[in-house]
Design a protein around this nucleic acid. Sequence first.
DNA 1: ATATTATATCGTATAAATACGATATAAAGG
DNA 2: CCTTTATATCGTATTTATACGATATAATAT
Lengths: 105, 105
Amino acid sequence: MEKAKSKACCTLDLNTEEQTRMIHISKALGNPIRFEILKFLLTHPGCITGDIVKYLPIAQATTSQHLKVLKECRLIEGEIEGTKSCYWLNEQTLLWYKSKIAEIF
Amino acid sequence: MEKAKSKACCTLDLNTEEQTRMIHISKALGNPIRFEILKFLLTHPGCITGDIVKYLPIAQATTSQHLKVLKECRLIEGEIEGTKSCYWLNEQTLLWYKSKIAEIF
DNA sequence: ATATTATATCGTATAAATACGATATAAAGG
DNA sequence: CCTTTATATCGTATTTATACGATATAATAT
């Protein structure tokens, strides 16, 4: 059985890169641990990994992995200070996401 | 090794149900096929499952599964009309998500 | 130099998501 | 009544996500 993709008469024209970015950010937001990290950073900007690890009910390795996901989609930014890593929300990304969601839907 | 969850001094107080809903909606948005379905419904409100199936590069069963996910988090609404099913975006959910995201972040 | 501390990454087990074909269901048409 | 059509659900294979302990890395302290 072959599947021919029919072109819709009037599909929404959204930049592919932008759409991919929207989906990545949504996926990152769609996990309870990562959502909790973002909320924590909201009230504790510039805190270190250790603070987040202490706050969360999961292992250090897993927390680090989640931070990586959030960094990759640029929802957060990090900076190494000596042996520690500080993290903040990336306001620009949040603004972009909010405005894009509002623009599309 | 025991893990004691330390209470942060000033965590963001967000209703648990609302947060769970935010996460579910975000997760639903965080998939390329589902994102495509939502975009399609934006330009084709009230269309039937078959239209969406024709438009997407995936099987009917998989499409139906994705529609179920979107229905479950109330991003879309459906109505059975004879042997067909019509679908629309749920504007209320979209409005709620946008305003809540803006409120939190 | 060595030990400690903070964090990231590796390897891997388990769980969840995604995909498909086959089948069930239920309305509509012959 | 039987057939067709549209869709949903079942069973299941495969992929991706999530979790952990162990280890690597790199700065700081002793």
